[in-house]
Design a protein around this nucleic acid. Structure first.
Length: 649
RNA sequence: GCUGCUGUAGCUCAGAGGUAGAGCACUCCCUUGGUAAGGGAGAGGUCGAGAGUUCAAUUCUCUCCAGCAGCACCA
């Protein structure tokens, strides 16, 4: 019989019969290992214990203490167990696909009636029965024809389609049995359903999802679940979800009195004084930064005739997502159609096109806090993060081909400084390269992609590549920052666009005296103020850095005799540039401290008879229990510095 | 936009085929209290909008609007 050599993690090499399974390998090492084994890693691939190994390979036997394979198997088996439970409860339900995702899995079903929360409870109970039955998991390799015939007979048309989509490149079509129930699956799986912990998973929600992610195809019902190795990990996950919910900017926005939204203006924000203070503080900061970095600021119209949008190409491509404004002008034969601007670039080209530009004017960095409106699909709206009216920290850099790399470097450096100022020290760059459908020559794409890559490197950063994700006219950079609880947000962007200058006929006079086409770089650091403020709120759980906090200090009185002194303290703080207010209400100090703590005011000062006598204040910082007594002069000096934006320190 | 769920006082929520309730917030009074809710009184609602069924609809049905979760979308 043919032999193969298997290399173990410790470097040992042993010979086995060709076609040996990892289960047999484990058994040959120790019965105890065979009992604990859940899967193997063969040549770096996650491998079922039942799959034969046909050639020399490296092998490692996995047990439940191997975190990554264990969780993958548990979640994958839970997906199958859930599908089986659903079909046992409702035999007419059709199964589709059920992959492992972060923290759990989902499975999509085709069923006429919606699943209710009570159904989820029933499914969960049935899943526990299946686990407790410890059904053996068995796998077989089937021919394509057999699999198709099997599913056709059962009316599982989604599975028929899935079998048809498996590429015919020799990879086996596998069937897995959990007891009597069977599913098409590439595996691997655990060896019996009882290996799945029966107390460490939870079905979370049910929602619609399109078959194959295509909005033109059937709407299925997706059930989400989370699964872990032990109840403690499940509990920790659920606690984390509660923590994330507490940070929800919609909830904090109300509690901190930052903004509200209402039916009459869906997807648009009514900023309250507190929220607007954050907004303007951030905008003032960005304006200073841009001026320092060589930008000029402009402002362009909100309502623009369709002619410009036709010229820019937006009318054809995005009309459904634009707010159209019909103007019925007096004496006009026809009504004119206009659109609220969904972006600023066409208008910026209009500014550029005024007067003749020389190569000496380039690079021209044109910035606008551009207020845009887009008719986003109703289902896309989310608090202040995804809205129909927003303001970008937008700018377009008009430059020559030769200047692209240097401008890229300059921008990355600029963005890095701003993210650092705003407290985001963890972020990454993604380079999206040429898509299948594109315009321009291969040489121009080669150069554009190289310019971006070199620009990032020159700024001292590394990047990931997103193959084929660029715009049809040029490659782009995406800047993704990580917030305080580890969530990623794409905020900044830099896109090379030779297309729009062409369409809108922008040009400059070169050194040779002839007309040339500039390149346009679209770029933003924050993305939109609305969304970025949402991210700031959630990342900080409402406890914004002092300089951005809308209410920085409240001076509370303990007795009404201290009212005058409190007002003096407020005046001193205001004179030092600190946002301060007095709370002289007829309430107890406990009450005031609680209220302002919930309002996320970073510093609460309390004053009573002692403080008046000593010209001091009692200082309580947000999140701290203990208080400290400080002289008025000291606290004013300290907070004056804290209130100073990071670029002015 | 699609699937499902939701819409009752400023907020969080209860309620029932006979036109409404709690807690907090708000106003006033008492209380001057030393670091996360002192006490009392009062005011506050076209029950998301429209139509239908009914003697009677906030409650049942339909349509619309908005919100939530997910999907799709995000120039």
């Amino acid at each position: 019989m043919a032999q193969i050599s298997l290399t173990f993690p410790d470097g040992n090499v042993r010979d086995f019969a060709k076609g040996v399974t990892p289960a047999e390998v484990a058994e040959s090492i120790a019965i105890s290992l065979a009992k604990k084994a859940i899967s193997a890693t063969v040549n770096g691939t996650h491998w079922d214990l039942q799959w034969p190994i046909e050639a020399d390979a490296t092998i490692a036997i996995n047990t439940m203490s191997d975190e990554a394979p264990a969780l993958e198997l548990i979640r994958h088996d839970l997906a199958h167990i859930m599908a089986r439970a659903v079909q046992e409860l409702w035999p007419d339900v059709k199964v589709t696909i059920g992959p492992v995702i972060e923290n759990g899995w989902y499975y999509d079903f085709d069923r006429k009636e919606p699943f209710t929360p009570e159904d989820l409870g029933a499914i969960e109970a049935k899943m526990k029965d299946i686990i407790n039955a410890r059904d053996p998991v068995r796998t077989e390799v089937w021919s394509r024809e057999k699999a198709v015939a099997y599913y056709k007979e059962r009316g599982e048309e989604y599975k028929v389609e899935l079998v048809g989509m498996i590429p015919d490149d020799g990879q086996p079509i596998r069937m897995y049995w959990h007891g009597d129930w069977q599913d098409l699956c590439r595996g691997p799986h655990l060896q019996n359903t009882g290996q799945v912990p029966n107390n460490s998973f939870k079905l979370m929600s049910v929602a619609g999802a399109y078959w194959r992610g295509d909005s033109d195809r059937a709407m299925l019902q997706r059930i989400y679940g989370v699964g872990f190795k032990d109840p403690k990990a499940l509990k920790a996950h659920l606690t984390m979800l509660e923590e994330a919910a507490k940070r929800d900017h919609r909830k904090l926005g109300r509690e901190m009195d930052l903004f509200h939204m209402q039916e009459e203006a869906p997807g648009q924000i009514f900023w309250h004084p507190n929220g607007w203070k954050i907004y303007t503080t951030l905008q003032d900061y960005m304006r200073r930064q841009q001026e320092e970095d060589g930008y000029v600021e402009v402002n362009t119209p909100q309502v623009v005739n369709r002619k410009l949008w036709e010229a820019s190409g937006h009318w054809d491509n995005y009309q459904d997502n634009m707010f159209i404004v019909e103007v019925d002008e007096e004496h006009a034969r026809e009504k004119t159609l206009n659109a609220l601007k969904p972006m600023n670039c066409p208008c910026h080209v209009q500014v550029f096109n005024q007067g003749l530009k020389s190569y000496r004017d380039l690079p021209l960095r044109m910035a606008e806090f551009g207020s845009c409106n887009r008719y986003e699909p109703s289902g896309a709206l989310h608090g202040i993060m995804r809205v129909r009216g927003f303001t970008q920290d937008d700018a377009h850099i008009f430059c020559t081909d030769e200047q692209v790399e240097e401008e890229t470097k300059k921008f990355v450096t600029f963005l890095a400084k701003i993210y650092a100022h705003l407290g985001f020290d963890q972020w990454k760059v993604k380079l999206s390269t040429r898509p299948e459908k594109r315009v321009g020559t291969e040489e121009s794409w080669d150069k554009a992609e190289a310019d971006l890559a070199n620009g990032i490197r020159a700024a001292g950063y590394d990047f990931e590549i997103q193959e084929g994700e660029g715009a049809f006219y040029g490659p782009k950079l995406e800047f993704v920052l990580t917030d305080a609880i580890g969530r990623d947000w794409q905020c900044g962007t830099l896109q090379i666009d030779p297309n729009l200058p062409e369409r809108l006929d922008a040009n400059y006079i070169g050194q040779d005296g002839a007309k040339h086409r500039p390149v346009m770089l679209h770029r933003a650091v924050l993305g939109s103020f609305e969304r970025f403020i949402g991210i700031l709120i959630e990342s900080h759980a409402g406890k914004l850095p002092f300089w951005l906090a809308p209410r920085q200090v409240v001076v509370t009185t303990i007795v009404s005799e201290a009212d005058d002194y409190a007002n003096d303290v407020v005046a001193a703080l205001k004179a030092a540039g600190v946002r301060a207010e007095a709370d002289t209400r007829n309430e107890k100090i406990n009450y005031k401290v609680r209220e302002h703590s919930l309002g996320k005011v970073p510093v609460i000062l309390a004053v009573g008879a002692r403080e008046i006598d000593e010209k001091t204040v009692s200082v309580r910082r947000l999140g701290e229990k203990q208080t400290a007594v400080m002289s008025l002069d000291d606290i004013v000096a300290e907070l004056k510095l804290a209130a100073c934006p990071p670029d002015l320190k």
